[in-house]
Each structure stands twice: as structure tokens, then as C-alpha cells.
């Protein structure tokens, strides 16, 4: 593993249940993931709920043992040296892993002590992370009195106390209002600017697009694409046009659509036509002209601009939030 690589996974598999029972292999939540994350990178796992993102993070943070495969985190094998790995990582779970009746400071003091911080060092670190997430003035308030966004920020702060080399952020913006979400993005970018490697899981494509240097699109336990968001969109994004047609398609019309210059692929389903285009706007002009010429009535029209959502749609045939 090169010095520049801080996480390297090879053929990671997580299988639940008794392989000898029922279907014979149990349920595979993660099916042979291989990837490498560079030091100082914000690496995103983008995929729908149940895709295997949290299971992968759980294996990388030594909470679950892989059924097959290996993972090296910060130079240590997650199975052979879990203690060394745990000292070097910070986990911000999807749940608000906080004690609601305790104050923000009490929560942080507790988590800091678990990592062996004490006395003046603990106080300094707690003040530092409270300031970092903008909660210094509410340090003495009970967490149950915080807004959703404040709780999320504190949830992140609790993962930073021991200054980890790698921070796992598992869906850190679930249930957060747009303003707080932007605040969280800024914190993540600041941490990364200070040199922290961040593994960020989300099912919001905007977050992956905005924050991540590279994104692994994951579905049904497999990585189906991995690159920078820009490259993924350029290669696969294009655009998608959904057209509803009134009286069915005239014979030969599908072939004429497919022949248009910007069109990559055409499929027909439920009385609609799905047109995958390299550039959606240009393709739309050609499509409208064609439908006009052939007297085909359009009942509905939806243009999906190229983004990671359309990349996912193209790769899997379904939306991220399906």
C-alpha cells in the first residue's frame, strides 16, 4: 500500500445469516468491494438506502468483521489490529449518538475520556471542537433542547475530539434543514482543508457532487462506478428525457428517435419513452421537431439534467431515493 493511500479494501464481503441454511449463502450486504482512498481526500459512498454503505463503514471501523476480503486503515488491518485502527479513526454514526439529557460539554467530556483524554487536554479539545461546530455558547445546555442541526453538529464534534486521521461520516445530514446542511458542509470542508481524510456516505447526490473529490456509486453491495463526480457525469451523466405520448408511437418512430445526433439510447415503458442523451437540451430540440413532423401528441415531458442522479439512473435504471 503506497504512503498516499490511507484506506485500502480488497474484495470486502459481508454476509449475514447461516450460509448453510435456506438459500445456501445467507444475505450478502456487501459483495466484494475493492477501493483505495487517498490521504487528505473526501471520498464519497453514494447509493440508496440499503446499498451497503453503512455495512462497509462498519467493517472499516472494526464494528463488523468482514466475511471475506481485507481492509487496511491508516496502516493497520481491521481484523488483525482493530485497536490500532480505532485509535486513528473517528466515527460519526447516522444516528444522533448523544445523551440527550446531558449537556453538550458533558457529552464531549465523556467521549473524550473514552479516548483517554483528561484534565487540561480534554478541556482544551472540548472547547476547540465546540468552537469548530459553533456550539461554544450552548455548551452547558442539554442536548435535548438543541435543534436538529445543532445535534448533528455536536454529533460530528464528538467524532473529532481525539483528532482522528480518518473521519467516517455516515449520512451526517439526515433530517437536517438546508441552512444547517450548508453549515455541516462548511465544517467538513474545513476539516479536510486541515488535512483530515473523510469517508462520507450519503444518498443525496448534491452532497456527493459538492463535497467529494471522488465518489463510489454503490448499489446492492457492489461499486458500480468510481471516479470524480465531474468525470462520472461527463462519461455517464448526459441527460435523460421522459416523454409521454398520447396515442402510442407510430411505427418506426423509435428508430427515428434513436437516429437523432444527441441521442444515446431509447427505451419504451408504460406508454412513455425514455431518451438517454449526451446533451439533453440539444436532443430535446430534435425530438420536438420529429414529433411535430409525425403528428405525435406529447402528454408529458420531463428533462433530467446531467448529474450524479442521472448517472445512477443510467447505471441502475432506478433513482437514488426509490
Amino acid at each position: 500500500m503506497s504512503d498516499n493511500i490511507i484506506i485500502e479494501a480488497q474484495g470486502l464481503v459481508k454476509r449475514y445469516g447461516d450460509p448453510s441454511a435456506g438459500s445456501g449463502r445467507g444475505v450478502e450486504a456487501v459483495r466484494g468491494l475493492s477501493f483505495a482512498i487517498r490521504r487528505g481526500e473526501i471520498f464519497g459512498f453514494l447509493g440508496p438506502n440499503g446499498a451497503g454503505k453503512t455495512t462497509t463503514i462498519s467493517m472499516l471501523s472494526c464494528l463488523l468483521e468482514p466475511t471475506e476480503g481485507t481492509a487496511i486503515v491508516a496502516g493497520y488491518d481491521v481484523v488483525k489490529a482493530p485497536g490500532e485502527v480505532k485509535r486513528r479513526i473517528g466515527l460519526v454514526p447516522q444516528e444522533l449518538a448523544l445523551y440527550p439529557t446531558l449537556s453538550a460539554r458533558d457529552n464531549l467530556n465523556f467521549y473524550g475520556r473514552i479516548y483517554g483524554l483528561r484534565g487540561r487536554t480534554l478541556r482544551r479539545r472540548v472547547d476547540e471542537v465546540l468552537g469548530m461546530v459553533g456550539l461554544a455558547e450552548r455548551a452547558g445546555s442539554a442536548v435535548e433542547d438543541f435543534s436538529g442541526g445543532m445535534k448533528r453538529r455536536l454529533n460530528i464534534a464528538a467524532g473529532l475530539l481525539h483528532r482522528p486521521e480518518v473521519l467516517f461520516l455516515d449520512e451526517p445530514t439526515v433530517g437536517v434543514d438546508p441552512q444547517s446542511r450548508n453549515g455541516i458542509f462548511e465544517h467538513v470542508e474545513r476539516l479536510n482543508a486541515d488535512g483530515m481524510t473523510i469517508l462520507y456516505t450519503t444518498h443525496y447526490m448534491e452532497e456527493a457532487e459538492r463535497l467529494c473529490h471522488r465518489v463510489a456509486i454503490i448499489d446492492q453491495g457492489r461499486i458500480i462506478a468510481l471516479d470524480t463526480p465531474r468525470k462520472l457525469i461527463a462519461d455517464l451523466g448526459g441527460g435523460i428525457i421522459h416523454l409521454g405520448v398520447a396515442n402510442g408511437m407510430a411505427e418506426g418512430l423509435l428508430e427515428q428517435i434513436r437516429a437523432l445526433p444527441e441521442v444515446r439510447a431509447v427505451t419504451q415503458f408504460d406508454g412513455k419513452v425514455k431518451v438517454e442523451a449526451t446533451r439533453a437540451q440539444e436532443a430535446l430540440v430534435g425530438l420536438l421537431a420529429l414529433f411535430n413532423r409525425t403528428d405525435t401528441d406529447i402528454t408529458s415531458l420531463e428533462v433530467l439534467e446531467p448529474n450524479l442522479e442521472t448517472v445512477f439512473l443510467q447505471l441502475t435504471g432506478k433513482r437514488l431515493r426509490d
Binding site: K86, L91, P93, A97, L98, Y99, Y111, I114, A158
Partner: peptide, 14 residues
């Protein structure tokens, strides 16, 4: 267990 604090604690060297 439900609120994820065990999960967070077990990700620490504990």
C-alpha cells in the same frame, strides 16, 4: 443500542 451510542463507543478503543 437504539440511539447508536454503543456503536460509537465500540468504534473507540473500548
Amino acid at each position: 443500542k437504539r440511539e447508536g451510542t454503543f456503536r460509537r463507543l465500540l468504534a473507540a478503543p473500548l
